[in-house]
Write a protein that binds this DNA or RNA. Structure first.
Lengths: 173, 173
DNA sequence: TCAGGCATGTAAGTTGTTACATGATTAC
DNA sequence: GTAATCATGTAACAACTTACATGCCTGA
């Protein structure tokens, strides 16, 4: 799975600009995928050259013009090819867990601070995902709804585990 | 957080070879970090040149020689510098969640298959982590134990959520 | 007037993976 | 005999991030 596969998927049910794709990454996808503009724009150019998508420049009033991309038949085929390929493992790198693992070298206040920050982050993410869910619920496919509710459930359980962990850490102090 | 930071952390409480470091990544670290030999060996060379670690060649009977690395004072400083830097966000890319999000374009059997595979993977990971935990428990620092128990708790709750999700998906069939 | 949203793009650099190359030993 | 474990390393390539560059419009 590369950014190209995800972009193809997004263009499967509508035409979007690079800016709008980035917005999707930051809201609905935030829990399981992300890519920067430095990936999105060059990838869109490459995909256009390969004939997977076509570009249309849209004039807007009181806003900059935008390039809206439409998936082609070749693009749909490439997307289906990805969807039929073998499922890849999750890629996860958690700075928090790495630091916790090496926590013995630091004062306990550091460890507590890392936990508190992770908890705050998780709470913020849950709020954001819930708001996004309410906002787009009506236009989402059943699997998209499952995806978001799964994401919220995972984050809520992560939060509970972190809060428990923090309490246990603070107990002996 | 780069592989260098994690390798420094590993060398903080003992001397290890590249092969042994990879082994740690595949067992205790498997839930929150990983790196290939193609990263580990060049990184160790680079770190030696920078004076963060020193190399010692160990002769072994009926096994190939190994290069065991020891952290230097400069290495310890670099490690502490990392530990005192700002906490970075989790990096997560889930092929499973991406596919689930786009599941509307596939036959339901595919979605069910992805869920089943993810469940199997999760179960296998929990088993592996539990075995590793039992095996190294006695030599682990308190924060290392917290780290592993947190990891197991997160994976067990993820598993429950996936199993629930699968049942709900199968229900209308 | 100034921050934030809208909008696109490039260049340099970082980081990492995969595949290749090698080879002895051990347990089944 | 054959698969797994132990052990190190490189080269080619892939993928992505960060920082830079630009500029208009809107609302507080």
């Amino acid at each position: 799975m590369t950014s190209q596969d995800v972009i193809l998927g997004i263009l499967m049910d509508g035409n979007y600009s690079g800016y709008e794709i980035k917005h999707k990454f930051e809201t609905l996808f935030s829990y399981f995928y992300n890519a920067s503009y430095g990936t999105i724009y060059p990838t869109l150019s490459k995909m256009e050259k390969q004939g997977l998508i076509t570009k249309e420049s849209i004039q807007q009033e009181s806003k900059p013009n935008k390039n809206v991309y439409t998936i082609t038949e070749a693009g749909r085929e490439a997307f289906m090819h990805y969807m039929e390929s073998d499922l890849q493992d999750v890629e996860l790198k958690s700075d928090f867990m790495v630091r916790l693992f090496f926590g013995e070298w630091m004062e306990p206040e550091y460890v507590i601070q890392w936990l508190e920050k992770s908890i705050a982050k998780e709470e913020q993410q849950i709020k954001k995902l819930s708001v996004d869910y309410e906002r787009w619920k009506s236009t989402m496919s059943p699997t998209q709804e499952i995806c978001i509710t799964l994401g919220i459930a995972v984050q809520e359980s992560n939060l509970r585990i972190l809060v428990d962990g923090l309490q246990k850490l603070k107990a002996p102090l």
